[in-house]
Design a protein around this nucleic acid. Sequence first.
DNA 1: CAACCTTGCTTTTTT
DNA 2: AGCAAGGTTG
Length: 755
Amino acid sequence: MIPLDSLNIKQREAVETTKGPVLVNAGPGSGKTRVITYRIANLLTNCGINPYNIVALTFTNKASREMSSRISNLTTDLRNSLTISTFHHFCSRILRYNATSINLDSNFSIIDDSDRLSIIKNVMTELKIDPKITPPRVILSAISNAKSLLLNTDGFKANASDNFKSMVYECYQLYEKQLHLSQVVDLDDLLLKVFFMLKSNNSILKTYQNRFEHLMIDEFQDTNIAQYEIAKLLSNQHRNICVVGDPDQSIYSWRNADIRNILDFKKYYSDAKIISLSENYRSSQTILTAAQSIISSNKNRIHKDLWTQNSKGHPVCLTETFNEREEATTILNEVQRLVSEEKMKLSDIAIMYRVNALSRVLEEVCIQNGIPYILVGSIKFYQRQEIKDLLAYLKLIANPKDDTSLIRIINTPSRKIGKKTISDLSSIANVLNLTIFDTLKQIVEEKIPPELQKRLNRGSLEKIKGFYKLLKQLLDIPENTAISEIITRIIEKTQYEEYLKHHFDHFEERLENITEFKNIAWDFSKNNEENSLILFLERISLVNDTDNIDETSSEYLTLITLHQAKGLEYPIVFIIGMEEGMIPHIKSMDSDAEMEEERRLCYVGFTRAKQKLYLSRTFRRGYRGGYERNIPSRFLNDLPKELTFVASEISEPTEYEDDWVNQEYQSPPSKYSSPKNTKTRFNQSSKSIRYDINKDVNPKENKISIGDHITHATFGKGLVTHVRKLGNDYEITIAFTDNKGIKKFLLSMAPITKD
DNA sequence: CAACCTTGCTTTTTT
DNA sequence: AGCAAGGTTG
Ligand SMILES: Nc1ncnc2c1ncn2[C@@H]1O[C@H](COP(=O)(O)OP(=O)(O)OP(=O)(O)O)[C@@H](O)[C@H]1O
């Protein structure tokens, strides 16, 4: 039996109402995810439901992993055959299994955003739409929006009321045609196609309806229409659907998430049991009050009670630093202090930020200080040129119809097949209504009409035949060959390494990336019984991160975006970049709705913290080449002063910034470093772990006390008026001569010498 | 067709 | 700022 006495009455009600629709609408830390995990454990162990009949859907990969591990902690009952995954993964599996029923090759590959964009660009060229006037991205997002509203081309046509929409419609049609020809799908298709498949094929629908007796959705506020409709279809037979969510934590509206789903749920399932939870078990009173002071300014919301029995705890710590490097140093010093002095574990701590770009400096400083860290998601490892090239070869092996991948590598490495030849080839393929690969095949087998063949001169023809032969060789690699071995063969056959060496300055780093890629492939084969290229590719399309480290067994610091942090919790949370333009982000500033979402995002961040929350801002931040002055985020103004304390105050920015820029640091920034969250990196970091408090400050040599006369490299002579311990460092206040004023510095950083 | 030079863009957030 | 696509020249 799973004991349910560690749940409060309301939670228990939600867990034990195993029949019929249930909606839990409750604030952060009130135990919504706990309800789902206990509910599953209860169904398995107490009700004897077969795990095969249970499905729990989440929104992000991180959340789904979190849920699996929480359930493992509760019960060991047959949880292997439980279905816990993201909507996209879930749909991908259904689609692959039933692909043939909708005339789709079950080896279909999933294209990424940049592939989508290049298809759109081609389509636009074909339709003679000027990409300068209508950016392809706009078309792409219109199509993507349509798909998440379950509008296929026909549905879209019915709605295409104005000029713009009819233009989009034309693009949409051709785009779909190309996808179908290539036997590929995009991410939105995973949902859309599954929906229409279930809708139109009653026997498939029945199969899944029968199977999924119990359906649960976490973070329901972030589902889009397509996801919700799929969930409705699947649960319509047993009607055991339990959704949990919090409108105040809706932060994915830009991805077409729609909180109206919550309202509709109440309407559609008029018999739904609606449960609200109002006790927060996660955060200290201070953190909770701070968070509420942020969210309560939103006009477009319904107030929810949220209280906690937890103690008041620590005040919210505000740090203000001069620039992003000092910010990183200060925070990581504090992290090390927490570990060495307050017995915190690195895994208790997370540093969060609005934009991925902010992780860069943190990483550098972590590496310098030997702090093991894990960077969640982000880094565009799979978007690097060399990796995309290899992926294109792999995709082509899995699915030769994939034109986009073929075009990508037809002349990479250079085979003297240029633009002209490629466009001729495409036009022939177009006329014959064949994929490029099939066209090549016809050409080689000399089956195409001579008047078409004429378009290619003899030189090109030879080169094309050479390329086709190469492809054939790759396709002949036996299916059971390990993926890493396939990659090795590709590299051999195409002489890819020689190509890199010849063409790029950073080729060593690119070669390292390739080695890393092979390692990832090798790990994958090791952990997956069936050595399936298709599954490998699918994983790469749907899971953004490369790590498969056991998350609980190792000690490292977490670096994560606010978005990905949703649903997670950490004893200690740092949020950096609390500046206007960052949070709230500049791009959200001219829309009230988006501004409210920024506020919610901030609220989500605050409420991740259990014990201690640190907020950090800088006076200046190097961003996109510029070096901008920042003003504090408006959200900081909303915090009641009595809840906060300011940890460090640096003097107003002055000329001394140059000293900052010249501070020596290791590891020059390079895009071409190895992937950020792999074992390699992890091992490197943990090997050099060293928690030396006095690393930066050597008190013996730098001993500076009140009354000392010093000389500062920029400001000249001055008198020390204050010395205060600050983390592992000291903050010293100096009164300078010659009316240069009073300024504060960090001892470890300031270029000063004792007179 | 490839090498070289110039322009233009980084989505904010993720499946 | 730095990279990659796009345009131009050899
Ligand atoms: N009844 C309870 N007794 C003790 N601890 C609880 C109880 N309910 C929840 N908790 C704890 O509170 C924390 C937050 O729970 P949970 O993550 O389920 O909240 P949530 O509502 O899903 O939060 P969020 O909306 O932020 O995702 C967890 O550490 C959980 O173990």
